[in-house]
């Protein structure tokens, strides 16, 4: 963890209680494990798709997998937001500052606004072709509420940011030091099957997920 620089207040030692329970638990864990043979930890593994990492192939695979879980693709952000009135946006660098006939507002700090808008607009930092998944990184962009609270989530994803596998995505998320404070993987719209296993979309999160590949 030597890679990180931290404020003094973020250092260790904010344990909330006297350490007796911690010590008793750890002591018992040690005691019970004494004499137990430790089997080896399997080597770290980097998994790739068999086919070469061609941008167009990966994008096509991403799209077909995402469509399989009810994601709808649009050619550009204008068609993806057509007919919408109020759209919350995150602070993503690649997001448009204006869209014709649509009122955009900063969504992340405005909960009332979020509850009343038609859609949330964010970018996604990574796409994962094998499952049609997007990774949204909290420290890059405040996606947490904008991608979750409104009934429609519109996400922009750069084709060049699509990788083959979850394994590749995880190593990217970890490569420059510690992972972001929040990473959200999204594969399709919110869903439930808790009533007789019938699929219903949009139970708590967005009912629709619209993606624009750029």
């Amino acid at each position: 963890m030597e890679k990180t620089v931290m404020n003094s207040e973020e250092k260790t030692g904010n344990s909330a209680q006297p350490d007796s329970s911690r010590d008793r638990i750890l002591q018992n864990v040690c005691r019970q494990l004494s004499g137990v043979e430790v089997p080896p930890l399997p080597e770290e593994e980097s998994r790739r798709l068999p086919q070469p990492a061609d941008v167009n192939l990966l994008a096509a695979e991403f799209q077909s997998k995402a469509e399989g879980v009810s994601v709808v693709f649009f050619d550009d952000v204008h068609s993806a937001t057509k007919g919408l009135q109020r759209v919350a946006v995150s602070n993503g660098a690649d997001l448009p500052i204006a869209i014709d006939n649509v009122e955009l507002f900063e969504g992340w700090g405005d909960r009332e606004g979020l509850l009343a808008c038609d859609a949330g607009l964010t970018t996604a930092q990574i796409g994962i072709a094998e499952s049609g998944t997007m990774a949204l990184i909290g420290d890059v962009e405040k996606h947490r509420l904008v991608s979750l609270v409104p009934p429609i989530h519109v996400a922009l994803l750069k084709r060049e940011n699509i990788v083959g596998t979850m394994s590749e995505a995880l190593s990217m998320l970890h490569q420059d030091g510690l992972p972001s404070s929040l990473i959200t993987f999204i594969t399709g719209p919110s869903r439930t099957a808790d009533i007789e296993l019938q699929l219903v979309l949009g139970v708590h999160g967005p009912r629709e997920l619209r993606v624009v590949l750029i």
Binding site: S131, L178, S180, S181, F185, T187, G205
Partner: peptide
Amino acid sequence: QLTTYQSIITG
């Protein structure tokens, strides 16, 4: 293949 959401929370 994957559930809809996975959140990795680090602090």
